[in-house]
Simulated assay, not measured.
Amino acid sequence: MRGQAERVARALDPGPDTPWLSPACLRPVRAEGAPDPGSVIREWARAEAERENALRVLREGWSYTVAARDETTHYRLTAWPLVLPPAGGLRVYRRTHAAA
């Protein structure tokens, strides 16, 4: 989830050293009070305490969501806990092909 958060943040708010963009394409925009979803998601991805909180929530069986928005769009990254069979013997699953 952290990797996805970094990827989304880079897409929403690329830095001036982004290799696939010409520096002339970018300019800083800081409107007072304007939402900045790229920064919100990037800050979450870099906050160790929040990631620990996410792991705790997932261990308890709940989903965990990071959300941000701007004037027109809502962005959401969600993780759900996996339900695994009890530990024990190895289970092997094979795909079979139906005869034509």
Results as ranks from 00 to 15, higher is better:
residue 48 E to H: 09
residue 98 A to E: 05
residue 92 V to R: 13
residue 58 L to H: 02
residue 2 R to Y: 00
residue 72 T to W: 13
residue 35 P to A: 15
residue 27 R to E: 14
residue 2 R to V: 08
residue 25 C to R: 14
residue 37 P to N: 06
residue 86 P to F: 09
residue 48 E to D: 13
residue 98 A to C: 00
residue 15 G to A: 14
residue 75 Y to N: 05
residue 25 C to A: 15
residue 14 P to D: 07
residue 33 G to P: 03
residue 71 E to A: 15
residue 36 D to M: 07
residue 32 E to F: 10
residue 68 A to C: 07
residue 1 M to I: 04
residue 28 P to R: 13
residue 7 R to L: 09
residue 97 H to P: 00
residue 93 Y to S: 10
residue 1 M to G: 10
residue 45 A to G: 11
residue 16 P to F: 12
residue 6 E to H: 09
residue 68 A to W: 00
residue 15 G to R: 10
residue 53 N to V: 09
residue 4 Q to K: 06
residue 44 W to A: 14
residue 88 G to M: 12
residue 50 E to V: 06
residue 67 A to M: 11
residue 91 R to I: 15
residue 8 V to H: 02
residue 62 W to F: 13
residue 32 E to G: 05
residue 60 E to Y: 02
residue 25 C to K: 11
residue 33 G to H: 05
residue 26 L to Q: 07
residue 1 M to L: 11
residue 77 L to S: 03
residue 53 N to F: 08
residue 36 D to N: 15
residue 41 I to D: 01
residue 76 R to N: 06
residue 87 A to W: 05
residue 4 Q to E: 10
residue 87 A to I: 08
residue 80 W to N: 13
residue 62 W to L: 08
residue 58 L to I: 06
residue 74 H to E: 14
residue 79 A to I: 01
residue 78 T to G: 07
residue 13 D to W: 05
residue 24 A to K: 09
residue 42 R to F: 08
residue 91 R to T: 15
residue 39 S to F: 05
residue 38 G to P: 08
residue 98 A to F: 01
residue 49 A to G: 13
residue 64 Y to E: 07
residue 91 R to V: 15
residue 43 E to I: 03
residue 69 R to D: 12
residue 27 R to N: 04
residue 83 V to G: 06
residue 92 V to T: 13
residue 63 S to R: 09
residue 69 R to Q: 15
residue 17 D to I: 00
residue 88 G to H: 12
residue 42 R to G: 08
residue 13 D to R: 13
residue 26 L to T: 04
residue 29 V to F: 09
residue 83 V to P: 00
residue 69 R to Y: 14
residue 53 N to H: 13
residue 10 R to F: 03
residue 63 S to H: 11
residue 65 T to G: 08
residue 16 P to E: 09
residue 22 S to W: 00
residue 78 T to S: 15
residue 24 A to F: 02
residue 18 T to C: 12
residue 70 D to T: 07
residue 46 R to K: 12
residue 11 A to F: 10
residue 68 A to Q: 01
residue 87 A to C: 09
residue 58 L to C: 06
residue 79 A to Q: 06
residue 58 L to M: 04
residue 45 A to S: 15
residue 38 G to Y: 02
residue 68 A to T: 01
residue 31 A to P: 04
residue 13 D to P: 00
residue 85 P to I: 02
residue 31 A to W: 08
residue 7 R to A: 14
residue 42 R to H: 11
residue 63 S to F: 12
residue 93 Y to Q: 10
residue 51 R to A: 03
residue 30 R to A: 15
residue 28 P to F: 10
residue 61 G to C: 04
residue 5 A to I: 00
residue 56 R to P: 01
